[in-house]
Amino acid sequence: MQQIKWGILSSAAIARKQMVPAIKEAGNAVLYAVASSSGRAEETASEWGAEKAYDSYEDLLKDPNVEAVYIPLPNALHKEWVIKSMNHGKHVLVEKPAAVTSDEIREIREAGKDSGVTWMEGFMYQFHPQHDYVKELLKDNAVGKVKRIRSSFSFPLDLGSKNIRLSSALGGGSLFDVGCYCVHACRYLLDQEPASAFSDARKIKNIDVDISTTAILSFEEVDCIIDCSFDEAALNRYEIAGTKGRIEVPFAFRPDQNPNGGMGEVILKDEKGAVKEHRTFEGNQFTRQITHFSQCLLDGTKPVYTPESTHNNMKVIEALYTSQNQVR
């Protein structure tokens, strides 16, 4: 089988814990190179099983054997290194959010068109089979007419730490970090764009990013309630309420964190709240994402998640942040 040679820019934890195993598990991908500015490139490459190690991102991008790069850098650095990667002819999978403004996404889209490379924002959750089943239920009107979606993604973070998620200069904040999944899920499930968006946020002394955000997205016939936080117990779920029942997905974004064997779950309830069906789904969403993107590169096809959708997701997030500023 043909394999895409991947390079990774940085030794970020998500790369080590999720993407390196995913690349190794995908039959059409191979981890070829790692770049780290920490001075530990050789050590990291040896630990991860990469053939090449580079002490600078630029040097990795100059390697003609690298075909695609994965970028898990801080959010505020995404645009710079996505475009630099494109200018070196590399295909790009960039962690969400792909940038921190819609104007930056526009620049990335233009750079992609000019360079002719393929790029995709890494919302890995959408590749898990549990969501395919939810889409089937919605298509079959299993809950009647959809009226409301509730989506939550939170986890406790040490608010006294130097974590990059707490730095506005690096593109931190709960909405950027985890709330973006909730925004994406509402748009993905409805296959629509919201007509309006409003949110409010909680901040604490000495931290200039949102620690928690609550938002409302209004679509043509559906209202979506979103909440995300760095200051609450772990939760990652969505619920779809219809006129004849509900669909609950209790581990929507990180099914690998489900204590029940890392399984995805979809629970269908009737109009009185009784469980009609409870199904579980296996699948590594990180591996499925890498496999899909790599196969697109091999086949010369477009990824299912488009630059246009990435741009639209950021415009919604931007609108939510703007509404917070207006309230304050």
Rank of each mutant, 00 (worst) to 15 (best):
Y188F: 15
I216E: 12
D55S: 15
D103V: 09
E277M: 13
K17H: 11
A53S: 15
V82E: 00
C180P: 02
S152N: 11
V94I: 12
N313W: 13
E80I: 07
D227Q: 12
P72I: 07
G245C: 04
S154T: 08
Y188L: 09
A233D: 14
Y32P: 00
S199W: 01
Y57E: 01
L175E: 04
Y188C: 08
D103W: 01
D299P: 03
I247Q: 03
I226M: 06
W6E: 02
Q324A: 08
R288N: 15
K113S: 13
K84N: 11
V275G: 10
R165S: 04
A50S: 10
Y54L: 03
R187E: 14
K96Q: 08
E95T: 02
V30M: 10
V316P: 00
I8M: 10
K96I: 06
R40F: 12
T291I: 06
P21F: 06
I71G: 00
Y32S: 01
V134I: 14
A26W: 09
N87Y: 14
F219H: 09
L235A: 15
P21N: 13
W81D: 08
E248Q: 09
L190W: 08
E265R: 11
M124G: 02
A26R: 08
D177M: 05
S56A: 10
D158P: 04
R288H: 13
P64N: 04
Q324E: 14
N325V: 10
S85I: 07
D299V: 05
I226C: 02
P74Y: 01
L298A: 03
G122D: 10
A35T: 00
N325P: 00
P307R: 06
V275F: 05
Q289E: 09
L235M: 15
S36N: 08
S85A: 15
I83A: 08
L31E: 01
D158C: 05
G172T: 06
Y305Q: 12
A233G: 11
P156M: 05
V66Q: 03
V304H: 14
Q3D: 01
K113W: 10
R109D: 06
S11F: 03
A274I: 10
A274N: 14
A99T: 02
K17F: 07
A29C: 12
D103G: 11
G171Q: 02
V66K: 01
M86F: 05
S154P: 00
A15Y: 09
E121L: 01
N163E: 07
A26Q: 08
L77N: 06
K147H: 14
C224Y: 04
G7K: 02
E265N: 09
R279M: 12
D177G: 00
G179K: 05
M314K: 12
G273F: 09
R106D: 05
G173N: 01
F176G: 00
V316K: 00
S154F: 04
P307V: 05
V146S: 11
G122V: 06
I149S: 04
D208W: 13
A197V: 10
F155A: 10
L77I: 00
D256R: 12
E80C: 04
L9W: 00
H91S: 15
K62E: 15
P129S: 09
K113V: 13
A274M: 13
C182H: 03
Y188M: 11
F293C: 07
S36R: 05
T118S: 13
D210A: 10
N65E: 15
V143I: 15
V69S: 02
Y321H: 09
E282Q: 15
A185N: 08
A15T: 08
E110V: 13
L31I: 04
Y305T: 12
A50W: 07
S161R: 05
V69A: 03
V20K: 05
